[in-house]
Design a protein around this nucleic acid. Structure first.
Lengths: 204, 204, 204, 204
DNA sequence: AATGAATGAGTTTTCATTCAT
DNA sequence: GATGAATGAAAACTCATTCAT
């Protein structure tokens, strides 16, 4: 990949490469702690080139986060459209999807960035809140409502706070990005516990 | 407060004031994004004074976090030493304590700081991991084990990942520090859901 | 002057020193061509210090120019208030004052800066236009009107363009700041010519 | 204009277009403040192309100024060779020509550029001084001498400083390029004043 | 000849840290 | 102890210049 001369590269590739490199640096050092020179080095280009594609460090940051959030929004549309199966099955599916989405690839760094830089980029935090979190909550809430109607779940579950139900997923991402080097998370076991706990807790 | 002469202040007052101001600034802006001048202003002193008590910005940061973590460690010792009551009651007590500890006062900002700056201050992340997280997990694990032995809880719970069980608590702190302005968390309802979910999920 | 330690200097002196150094650099290199580091060096301080007193290079520039314009405004008030003498005498006085004001000290660089940077700092050009040029024109115009009324000057002079009458003064400053090294201007002779030309040209 | 293929353009067209565009940009922003990219855009070409015709930004600047000065030098030769008419008529002619030359087309920006960038390009200032200013002065001086000999003008005019006599012309260009947006110069009236003042001032 | 993406030196600006008072 | 002016290293950003196409 590095063998071919720079000028040979496809035009659209460049910004993508910068975004990827930037995501990694921002994830490690946060916004203020990241030096654009390091982003450039990681992307195999030089400082000034970043400014051919992004107006400023701030804009780059916003684009990095948006770029990783958007695919999830599309995924969420799909989750929404699966009406078959019992509520139990659906919930299990949803959780599995969330974990896969949340922890696959570079996307796992987004929550950390939102948490770290939310106060500097409130629009970004709001965007994430509205487009991701709120929508995930709506999906799980509708599944639970369905389960209650079908007599699968306890009625009291209708009033449950979705954050508390899905919270373990957020904790998992944080664990992976922050504490994994101290004690690696066994994701399968973790997901199994979450599902077991949730489904058994919902059951009549 | 400013009326009394500087020499009248109790010895530990000054550093404490700096730590408090620093915690607030660091929480909002992160480590790199925080200017010591702002910390000084918030503490009502001037920039240079910080260096009378702390060697560097890094040391200040470490002290800020340590200073807020240490009281929790003491609290944890106490939680450990309460053998009375059923496992169910104990677990309910532990969760309640955790939420109180985690979300009371300025301590709530520590998780966000650990998440944000963990890669820059790995010793701090490790310290938090070992002294707080690991120990909390041990406590809850022992209570669950006791509940299983007593026949209160399902046996399968012995293998549960503690992170998944206590994850909602971490999610709560994050929510409070990041998303609360978009949708305020009803902490009581949240805790109730967490307890209901967990206890019902553990029950035979 | 350099012998006394930096901290001994009077507080108000510092910004003034910077303004003086900046005026010199800006006069030579223009706005964009001036490096703040050179300004600092010339002022005997270091780069960062400038920012303790001026928000940005642009603000420094504006302050430099304003700072040199303002004294002239005060001078102009005085010129205005001299009703004694024939129009001829007054005009001779005014011209002499203008040349003294315009060519004394560092003030002589202001016209060059206004000319060079007027398009980048239009408010500054306007300020100079309104506060200096327009007012000088008004003064000379009123003297000429008085001379016509008194029968000293030709009536046609009432319609003269003031710029054309006072233009040689502007030319003199430019000459001094731009061409003086090629051919030094004999200011006394120049002023004498200007006065002779003007007064004889006005005479009936 | 963009319709015809590049290869159809006359050989000298391209550099001329660049010079024209560059003159405009340099006039507005000065040397340091001008970006070659803007020059290229204005010329309808792309950045790199400038370097096919000019070695560097400095060379481009020098060429821009030279290119606008040279035609005037030719004009001056002609002015010099008109021996018919009274000194009064000749002087009136010369002044009219100067104003036309100086204020027609893009040439009007040269004095501003010389004033602004004279210290960075001293050879250019010297060139302008020697080839334009000095020669204009010589012409007017010889006319005045002729007028004195012919008994048209006062003898004292022989010692007059030419700068003071022709200064209003320089002031006019500056006014046009700097202050015209605040108060438009009535060039005809201005020239009339200048001629009236000068001729009446020279008359016995 | 022309392009325009890429480079990297140079400049503005910030801010942790020092130190004379 | 406390101050806050001064420092200067470091980082964001710009733009003249190059060069593969």
């Amino acid at each position: 990949m590095n063998a071919e001369p720079a000028s040979c590269r496809r035009k659209e590739g460049r910004p993508k490469e910068i975004l990827t490199a930037a995501l990694q640096e921002f994830s490690i050092n946060g916004f203020a702690g990241t030096r654009l020179e390091d982003v450039a080095t990681r992307a195999g280009i030089c400082k000034g080139t970043i400014y051919l594609y992004f107006k400023s460090k701030e804009e780059l940051f916003v684009e990095v986060v948006r770029d990783r959030i958007l695919p999830h929004i599309e995924q969420l549309e799909n989750i929404n459209e699966r009406p078959e199966g019992t509520a139990k099955v659906l919930l299990r599916q949803q959780l599995t999807t969330i974990y896969q989405e949340l922890l696959s690839t570079d996307a796992r760094f987004i929550p950390k960035l939102i948490i770290s830089e939310g106060s500097r980029f409130p629009e970004l935090a709001q965007f994430y809140f509205e487009e991701i979190i709120t929508r995930i909550h709506k999906v799980s809430q509708s599944i639970i409502a369905r389960g209650v109607t079908a007599g699968e779940f306890r009625e009291s579950a209708l009033n449950w706070e979705q954050q508390a139900i899905l919270g373990p997923a957020l904790s998992a991402v944080i664990w992976i990005t922050v504490f994994n080097e101290f004690e690696a998370l066994d994701l399968d076991a973790y997901l199994k516990t979450h599902i077991d706990l949730l489904l058994h807790g919902l059951e009549k």
